[in-house]
């Protein structure tokens, strides 16, 4: 924690009612074994998930457990997922400015349901498309970073479906849309 009290009111005639007090806390967390496996696979251009034999649900990134069936999942339950799929939902965000925010222009965040065994990635970046042309049912594919530019720095225990550092985002494949009605109940 660093202490940098700053007097907020610049006009010395005014009484000071607020003082900024910046605190700095550093957290260093060991990346858990299953996410390390996931990150290593991303470096090799593969998206790893875990499938629960009881519930049949696919988790990406893998979690080591299925919270629905309450069973522990191990290496045997790892499954390689496809790197293309369908946009099932999205929002376009006008960035709110706060300390550390670097975004200034509206950006899209989409949920992508992967083909094949499945697996849903939330909050994905959509590339090469004006934000107002994004739609549910659009087919997209991963835009991988070149292997030498990939990094595991952004992957951690808390990175909620993140493929950051390996995949730049997802771009339209140009294939015909899948009917949007199919995804009304697939919000994640």
């Amino acid at each position: 924690m660093s202490e940098q009290p700053v007097v907020a009111a610049s006009d010395s005639e005014q009484p000071v009612v607020m003082m900024d007090y910046f605190m700095h806390l550093e957290y260093r967390e060991v990346v858990c074994p299953i996410v390390r496996r996931y990150a290593d696979a991303l470096m090799d251009g593969k998206i790893l998930g875990q499938i629960s034999p009881t519930s049949g649900l696919v988790y990406v990134p893998p979690r080591s457990y299925c919270p629905v069936s309450c069973e522990w999942l191990g290496e045997d339950h790892l499954v390689e997922l496809e790197d293309h799929g369908v946009v099932t939902n999205f929002t376009i965000v006008t960035p709110v400015q706060y300390y550390g925010q670097e975004e200034t222009e509206p950006f899209a965040k989409a949920s992508v349901l992967l083909d094949g065994p499945g697996g849903m990635l939330g909050l994905q970046d959509i590339l090469d498309l004006p934000v107002d042309e994004l739609r549910v049912g659009m087919r997209v594919e991963a835009v991988w970073l070149p292997p030498e530019e990939r990094t595991k720095d952004e992957i951690g225990n808390r990175s909620w479906g993140s493929v950051d550092g390996a995949i730049r985002g997802w771009r339209p494949t140009g294939e015909p849309d899948v009917p949007a009605e199919q995804f009304l109940d697939k919000v994640y």
């Binding site: 939902n89 999205f90 929002t91 965000v93 960035p95 709110v96 706060y98 300390y99 550390g100 925010q101 670097e102 975004e103 950006f107 965040k109 949920s111 909050l123 919000v187």
Partner: peptide, 15 residues
């Protein structure tokens, strides 16, 4: 504390 945060609205908007 990271960039690209969307606030609660960004989570709820798709729903």
């Amino acid at each position: 504390g990271k960039s690209g945060g969307m606030g609660a609205g960004g989570i709820f908007a798709p729903w």
